[in-house]
Every structure is written in structure tokens, then in C-alpha cells.
Design a protein around this nucleic acid. Structure first.
Lengths: 346, 346
DNA sequence: CTCCTTTGCTAAATTGATTTAGCATAGATT
DNA sequence: AATCTATGCTAAATCAATTTAGCAAAGGAG
């Protein structure tokens, strides 16, 4: 009746030992590759052969019970569905975990404290060897105050109680975006879409966004450039981008470039430009951030500063594996050049 | 030195029993809610109080060792990153698992047999209570021939060895798409984008796609409609959609509606229509499939037949929990009406 | 008063690994 | 010849639960 009952039972260590004519102790030591055992080469060979013949695989529950390690991590994230970014983080984490022969428990909390506590408890109950707290919008993540004696890394998030975190290097990314326009010979007529210091003074957006903005503004200053227009909006979605860009492109600021805070805003900006008959990149250059999937679909392709999600996911796992150093681990944001910033014609 | 060592050790069942002044047996029976035990109400109260006071949580490794159940499932998928669909499936599965107090191990194989075997082995080693094999492009999934005595459900995939599968109801979806055009009063000038029987005769695409096509064609026939043009392409990506739609819209078939095989093709079709100065939906209606994220961003919003990924994910977990019936479990594809099919003006 | 049943509970076995402590034997040293 | 040291291996404890088998006391039946 039980599905498990039909299949022949898995071979245990005892079976291997019996077949090899040795003790469980010996078999265990050999199979786990203990270093300073004095077991003979012949014993090694016999155990290996036996294990192979029986298709032996250790029972992780039993091993974990004894060793308190499970070869598994938990990936606890606020939201996995809503944003396509989650996938990159998860994928990178999965990949690194697989390399290290670990598995990943994935848990979603929706950012709700109660579910967060539940998720942590579930992970701890299963004795995970480490926990990754991931946030989709980099923010200071709430973590219920449980005494969790397990390594933790914050992924795309920060929390004072857990000093190890992995973040995109937004400051450098902001700088790179400005440099892209500079390199294209654009010296004036630059509009900023999605953020405006005057409109947002005192508003809290998120740690990484503010670094992105800071990176942009500091590099603008360094190059002695300034924005001819800034439009702020709260939701960085295409419809906002469309509205804002339309206003900006019409108002006759002589806009020659649009720096968009993310690709979805840029997506809206494309639609506005198309409607106004303004050509990208000949009349207006567009740069943005994230390297969202849509960035590649636009015509011309959108030049953007990528959020290195996969690499971040990988890093977070590796930090767990290596007992990573405290502090922020910044991952560079690659510049993805497509067609939306043309070289200037002099 | 060991992080785990700092924290006070977790309370064990023995601790609870001691505090309650009862045996481990009694504590276990009470905490797991065994039905026919004859332990007194007072014993129940004492054990509960003790467990509560100590913050007792069972050690899953120990429990699993004895019971052979882990309250966990494995979600083994070919690709999680490449397509945004994976998230819906995973999210639905996660949600259902959480409700049932289970956790989900997520594993990715890239569709490579070697990694598939590895993933299955990793899951089996950890004694998962069930395995979900998910494919992103519904197909007959290869599953290495391991004797796995664990319930399996195929998600968005089929495999003769595992009869329980969850699939979108593509036949009904195809029918619904045609009905949408019919309801808008469109009786002629319908083009099919992405598929053409003459071009693809004998080609294998995928099980579900062929059902989608069959659903479309059978409903066309029922309504005595026919396509004035069919264009086939292999990659259903925006650039193909753009090219094909441009050709179709120009060639003067008098196209009044475009039935696109997926949203990305539709995305390209929008770009083509915009370039040709053809208005959606006034001059040409567009319907497609998937309810991809981009469908909501387009202007006007794209009317599409949604792939019910979250619901499918949920179903697959519930089938594992309930020991689901053999056979295909078809999940309806919701019609998402946005602005790309206008009511006809007579 | 004896025997049987019910009630309320527990000792000990079990699960499958790892790990500690230590036992023979052979050869080397004094 | 007695002692010491490697060498090669194993018995038994341990991890934290569940489960089997069964014990002691109380109450009821005959």
C-alpha cells in the first residue's frame, strides 16, 4: 500500500559493512574519507566495491541526527513571484549550492512577520546549515528575534543583527550610467526619470536606490553635467514612465538623453518617444538600470546597467560555505550596451 | 567557535518529558496527537505546558529517521531562470506546501540527464515525501531510470512512467481565444501568428502546443471561420513576431485580427502595427496566449489566454498530499481581457 | 475472594548513521 | 625477555525522536 514499501529497501551502511566483511565503523570511516584512519588499502577497496555494488547512499536523516549538519540551506525571501529578479537570485544560489552538494529549501514569506517566523522555524527544525534572507526590493529586512544559532547572510538586503550581506554595487552602477552618456558625447539636455531630489526630500525609498542616485549625482557633478529636468514617481512601472517621459519630451527642454531609474520606466519612455515620433537613439538616448527581460525586446535594444542577481545569489551561498567575512559584499553591476545610446555625430 | 555552540541547545523531547514529570513515550504521544492513547487530560496539560515553556520543537532529523517522512517535497525543474513561468509554478507549489506545513527543496537540472540523476538522488537521500518534476516547455520529460519509491507528479510535463500529471487545459484555451474574436464580431481577416500547419507538418513542437493549435482550429471550424494568413516561426520571440506581423499586415490580406501563439509574438506584432500606423484594436485586434508579464505593459493592454501557473503549482502539491488520482489533471486557462480586442462597431 | 478488564503510563527497542575508546597482533627497542 | 609503538580494526555509545510490548493499580463481574 505504501509506495515506499514496494521498492526494495535502500542499502544501509550496515549492509555495506557486512558485504565488505568489515565493521560499520570501518565502512563509515572509509566512505566519509576520514583522514587519519589506519585502515588498509585493501579495506578501502572492499568497502568501495561493496558500496558500489549495493548502490549505497547514506541516509541523510541519520547522518544529520548525529552530525547536526544537513547539507542544506534555506532561502527565505519576501516575494518570489512578483518580481522577475527573484529568479536570478534563486538561480545563482541554486547553482552554487549544487556545486557544493547542498540543496536549497526555498521559502516565501510575503514580507509578513508571522510567516517569516514560521519560515525560520521550519528551516531551523530541519537543521539547515545556513540561511539566506533575500529581499526583492533591497531594504532593511525584518527578522523576527529568534535565537538562531545558524549562519545567516542577507541577500539584497541589510539588517544590523546580521552583518554579512550581499548587495549590488549601486554607486558604481550609477556612475557607469552617467559615463555611458558622457562617452556618447552628450553634454547637455539630460533628463532624469523616476527620481527627483526636490520631490523626494526626506522620503525613504530603499538603501540601494539611494546609493544608485548618489552614484549618478556624484558622477554628474564630477563631469560638470546637470539635469535639465527631473521627474519623480513612486511606482517605477511602464505607465508612469510613459506619462513622465511624454511630459518631459514635449516640454521643450531640448532633451537629448533620458536617464531612467529602471527598465520599466524606460519601457514607458520608449512608448512615449514612439508616439511623439522621436527616434531612439538618434534624437534621444536612453540608459537605465536592471537589465530586465524586456530590455532586450525593445527596439532598439535598451542599454542598461544590469543588476547582477545570479552572481549575487552565488556569492551568498559561497559566503555561507566559507563562513564569509562580516560586512557588505558588493557585486559589480555590468554595463549592457545595446542600441539605445548612439555615438554622437559631430 | 562554532556558531551553533553559542546558542543554548534546543530543548529535546526528553527535556519536555522531564519537566512534565512523564516519560518520553507519553510526551511524544501527546505532542504528536496520537488518537487512541489513554493518557489523562492532566498529563496532556502538563506536557503542553512544558513544551511551551521550553519552546520545544521536534528535531526533524530524528523524527524522519524513525518515521521515514520529512514533511518536505522536491521541486525538480529543468530550468528555473530562463522563463518567467517557472516562478508561477514554484510560487503556487510553495504556497500549497506551506499550507500543509511542508517545505520545498528546489532543484534545477538544466534538462541535462546527469544533473537530473543527481537531483533525484539528492532528493531521495533526504527522504522527501514526494517529487514534482516540472518542465518549463511542456514536454515529455526524461527521468533517469532510478527505482524511486516516492510519489511523483509531473508538472507541465508528461512521462509514461509517472501517470499523474498537471497540465494547462490548452484545448479549451485555444477555443476561448477564437471565441473572443467571434464575440467581438470578427468574421474574416484573421491571421495566425507563430504556427502554420503547412509549414510545420510532421514537426514536433510540444504536447501542449499541439493541443492549443488543435483547440484553435477545431473552434475555427465550428464557427465556420478560416485564417486568411498563417505564418510559422520556431522561436516565439518578439523579433520574430515583429517580422512576421509586418509581412502579414502589409501584404494586404485585409487583416482585422491577429491570433498570436504567445504574448512575445504579440509584443512584436504591436511593434509592427505601431510602425505601420495601424491601430490596435481599432484596425486590428490581437489575442494571444500566456499572460506574460509584458502583456499588461503594452498599450493597449494585451488580451490573452493565461497560463495558470500558480494554480498548476498548487495542484501538483495537493496531488502529492492527497495521493492524487492517476491521469492528467487539466487546469483551466483564464481569459484575461484587456484592451487589444475591441467590440466591433456595426 | 478471584479473575478479568480498563486505565494510565513506561522501559526498551528501533531508525542509520558517526564517533569514542580501546583491543589484538606484529615488529622494534632496550 | 620485557616493554613499547604502530598498525588495523571493532564494540558500544550517541544523536532525538517513534513505537512496541507490557506493567501496575483500580474497578467490576462472577
Amino acid at each position: 500500500m505504501n509506495a515506499r514499501a514496494e521498492a526494495k529497501k535502500r542499502a544501509t551502511l550496515a549492509d555495506v559493512a557486512r558485504l565488505a566483511g568489515l565493521s560499520r565503523t570501518a565502512a563509515s570511516m572509509i566512505l566519509t574519507g576520514k583522514p587519519d584512519t589506519r585502515l588498509s588499502a585493501e579495506a578501502h577497496a572492499r568497502v568501495m566495491a561493496a558500496a558500489d555494488q549495493l548502490g549505497y547512499r547514506p541516509n541523510m536523516a541519520a547522518r544529520s541526527l548525529r552530525t547536526e549538519r544537513t547539507q542544506s540551506f534555506a532561502f527565505i525571501s519576501d516575494v518570489v513571484a512578483t518580481t522577475r529578479f527573484a529568479m536570478g537570485l534563486i538561480r545563482g544560489a541554486l547553482e552554487a549550492a549544487e556545486k557544493a552538494q547542498h540543496v536549497m529549501l526555498v521559502l516565501e514569506t510575503g514580507g509578513e512577520p508571522a510567516r517569516e517566523s514560521e519560515a525560520i522555524a521550519a528551516a531551523l527544525d530541519r537543521q539547515v546549515d545556513g540561511i539566506i534572507f533575500a529581499a526583492m526590493r533591497a531594504r532593511e529586512v525584518f527578522v523576527p528575534d529568534m535565537r538562531l544559532g545558524t549562519p545567516v547572510v542577507m541577500l539584497n538586503a541589510t539588517n544590523p543583527r546580521f552583518p554579512v550581506s550581499v548587495l549590488p554595487d549601486e554607486a558604481a552602477g550609477g556612475k557607469a550610467a552617467v559615463e555611458l552618456l558622457w562617452a556618447a558625447g552628450i553634454r547637455s539636455g539630460i533628463g532624469l526619470l523616476g527620481q527627483s531630489d526636490v520631490a523626494e526630500a526626506g522620503l525613504f525609498r530603499s538603501e540601494t536606490v539611494s546609493r544608485r542616485v548618489a552614484g549618478i549625482r556624484s558622477q554628474m557633478q564630477k563631469r560638470r553635467l546637470s539635469f535639465v529636468a527631473e521627474e519623480s514617481c513612486w511606482n517605477w512601472e511602464p505607465d508612469e514612465g510613459y506619462k513622465l517621459a511624454k511630459r518631459m519630451l514635449k516640454r521643450g527642454h531640448g532633451i537629448r538623453a533620458l536617464l531612467c531609474m529602471n527598465d520599466r520606466l524606460a519601457f514607458g519612455a520608449y512608448q512615449a518617444a514612439a508616439e511623439l515620433g522621436i527616434s531612439v537613439p538618434d534624437e534621444v538616448a536612453i540608459v537605465s538600470f536592471d537589465n530586465d527581460e524586456i530590455a532586450a525586446y525593445l527596439r532598439p535594444g535598451l542599454t542598461t546597467i544590469a543588476l547582477p542577481h545570479e552572481e549575487m545569489g552565488r556569492r551568498s551561498v559561497n559566503l555561507l560555505l566559507e563562513g564569509g567575512a562580516k560586512g557588505e559584499h558588493l557585486v559589480p553591476m555590468p554595463v549592457i550596451e545595446r542600441g539605445s545610446v548612439g555615438k554622437v555625430k559631430r
